[in-house]
Amino acid sequence: MQTHPELAASVQKGLENFSESKILPTCERLQDALKGISIRRGSTVVVHALPASGGYTLLSLLLVEPSLEGIYSAVLGLGDYNFSLAAHLGADLSRVVTIDPKLKFSERELAQAAFALLDGFGVVVISGGIASLNSPRFSAKARQKGATLVVVENSSSLQGISYRIKADLRLFVARSSWRLSNSVSSGILTEGEITVQVLGRMEHRPGRQAS
């Protein structure tokens, strides 16, 4: 049986779109850092952040493309996160919600709120403390709703890294040194590159279906 080439192309495009819709859109810089590994919607991603090692830059990069493509993100439990970095990297902050930092809530209350947000937000970013309260439930809800759950695990040293949250994708971030810029007009610092080491239970590369 012969297939009409236009129909075949259309079917192929449809399949690609279907496959892409299951993948969280990521900006070019993050794609470079992830070395071709995609983040599936509905997966749990743990970002291991050592002090000033680039974990928060990675988080900001994660927010950029979804916000530009109309996907809403929520960030909870990261009181020291500076949203202006995400804006600087190109994120549309009008599609990002957070909890008023002036109000104080327990991790348990924030966990309840995060659980509710998974119903309608494409990306939900929470701290390791919140996720650890009931990480299997969070992951199950994210999977069910097709939301990407990003857990930021802060550790003060390599020895202190915690693996308490089960993750589909585990990102260890390192960055090259910051340097003073030659001219203030171009920014006071020259940013080094961030490199990401990925450990995944469900690595998903284009062209290869993850199990």
């Binding site: 809403y72 990002v96 957070t98 109000l103 119903d119």
Partner: peptide, 26 residues
């Protein structure tokens, strides 16, 4: 924002209290 997003954010605000959910801007 889509209806589902509005509902989810409103539900979070119900849990945490009035005006707890906000949108950052630079």
């Amino acid at each position: 924002p889509p209806e589902l997003t509005v509902r989810a954010a409103n539900r979070a605000e119900t849990i945490l209290g009035v005006n707890s959910v906000c949108v950052p801007y630079v």
